[in-house]
Design a protein around this nucleic acid. Structure first.
Lengths: 154, 154
DNA sequence: CGTAAACGTTCAACGATTGAACGATGTCAT
DNA sequence: ATGACATCGTTCAATCGTTGAACGTTTACG
């Protein structure tokens, strides 16, 4: 199936040289390889990659509306509905209508949701360590810092 | 709820703190943001992001079969068929059946294909500079190098 | 008041991707 | 030789995620 497996590559190089040598293609390749592996990594937490992103945004950015949640997610508002439905059914999240503006429903993580998020943080960190076997911890931290600093506008 | 993101595009995409602080989510977010922007960047070259990746792999890795091309692409073999069909119709690529094994058809970039690839390299580099305004050229190079070294197996 | 906007939600339509087929070709043990 | 099996390119139906346009409700405002 997929060759993004951390151990013993049987065939040949799992990444094309022509891709690795081109930053844009490399970044896109790594990004989608990660998305493909994410659900496997997070399986022990019971969360999907989407669930993980939503819980992370809810607890850290505390968006006022689902539209805002969707915008931070980079997706259409309908996506937020589906995602929150799932998380709510799993008891990881609560919808609370805003009394001062009853159009809005604020979404908040439950204690179970925050616990699942912490587990997912650990699982994704482990997965990332496996995905980047060519770097030690220090270099990996540098990589994340450069990435974060790079996209946030100066 | 705070706007940690000054004006770059009013109403434009903002990155969530909860995403930026988590390497796995950050990497996935940047990767898909890049894929979303890629077609716009490459428009002047007439190439899609998929076209770009295929041409890059063909000229650099020279895969023997379309199955190998698909594997390097990280996709199913049927994807390679569609991609090569498009590029062949545009005159950027040629299918040549292997005389020693007539099941295989080797795919090679034409001069026009190589020219389009060079243009796409320039366009994507420009786009990347715009996507990472928070880093100078030296730090960006470090970022690409860490990324490439990290995924390639030790 | 009456119009317009914002919110959550639903839904049909679309594009991308996959796995299973198929015919053609090649390989290998018998 | 012959038969069984693998590999190649290709097609196709089915699936999945995503979107844009609607809708009812609620709020803002002239």
């Amino acid at each position: 199936m997929n060759d993004a497996n951390p151990v013993g590559s049987p065939g040949g190089p799992t990444i094309a040289e022509g891709v690795a040598a081109r930053p844009a293609l490399l970044l896109a390749h790594v990004g989608s390889a990660l998305e493909a592996a994410a659900d496997d990594w997070l399986a022990p937490s019971g969360l999907s990659g989407r669930d993980y992103a939503v819980l992370a945004i809810l607890t850290t950015d505390a968006p006022d509306t689902q539209h805002e949640l969707a915008r931070l997610l980079g997706k259409a508002p309908g996506i937020a509905v589906i995602a929150v439905d799932r998380l709510e059914a799993a008891g990881l999240v609560e919808r609370r209508r805003d009394p001062s503006d009853r159009r809005r429903s604020r979404v908040e993580a439950t204690p179970a949701g925050r616990k699942a998020l912490r587990k997912a943080d650990q699982l994704s960190a482990d997965g990332l360590d496996r995905l980047f076997p060519g770097l030690d911890a220090g270099h990996r931290d540098t990589l994340w810092r450069l990435l974060a600093d790079g996209i946030t506008r100066p």
